[in-house]
Amino acid sequence: MDIFIQQLFNGLTIGSVYSLVALGLTLVYGILHIPNFAHGALYMLGGYVTLTMMVYLGVNYWISILISIITIGILSVLMDRLVFHPLRKSTPIQHKVAAIGMLLFLEALAQLIWGADYRQMPTPYGQVIQFADVTLTVQRLIIVVAAIAVMILLYLFLKKTFMGASILAMAQNREGASLVGINTNKVAVITFFIAGTLAAIGASLTSPINLVFPGMGHLVILKAFVIIIIGGMGSIPGAILGGYILGFSESIGATYISSDYKDIIAFVLLIVILSIKPQGIFAKGGV
């Protein structure tokens, strides 16, 4: 039983990070209508920027994260303006090729700058808390609390502000959004910025318990795809719920089945859910 509760907490930790990355991916899907494969590279760079700030420049953890958020947010916007926006009149396959091209480019760039080594990000929050029979580190607690706080803020932004509503409106009907006077270029910029910040937050929070390396975005982005497919493309509650479903399945599967097969669980889950509900869980839900 203790192991089970321990694994539930671990699932919550991993799931929080998955949800953050998947949320960014799903928001951008509303604009591009293709999954942005390069989102994984933004996640990876988010980890590196935080790491560089802390290790090489000795900046405080939270300020490093803030710098990373802003840098990756801007990078994400540049990606849209320099690559996706000029392609807006072309076919979806060209968007996909461009996205993969950017993923490869950014990974090679990271390798050039930081090398191919695996790096450990130090954390000022390594303390261990013993709570009944469950062991947790402060860092893991921070991941869960921060991720949930960010998701609540994002939800309030989307539901309570005109700017947030314009993002959802554009995802649901682009021309309809134009016809009520929404500047779709501005909305695209804001959406890409938010998606970038979510990737940077996810990577910065989780890096101290994982490792930072050029390929760190691969598995995360693949799983984020699985999550938004499971949750329904473009659905925000779907991305959050999907992230946690995957987090729990992985940590529990790793304990009771085999940790060697941890990474395959996402894809088994994908096959099972799509066999039962091909549109995804929240396909028509929206927010």
Partner: peptide
């Protein structure tokens, strides 16, 4: 302001949310 032939509503938003966006 145009009210298009295929209406171009925000299907998953509520009626009131659609109207409020009309006043964007």
């Amino acid at each position: 302001v145009q009210c298009a032939e295929d209406r171009k509503l925000f299907q998953q938003m509520t009626v009131q949310e659609n109207l409020m966006l009309g006043g964007y």
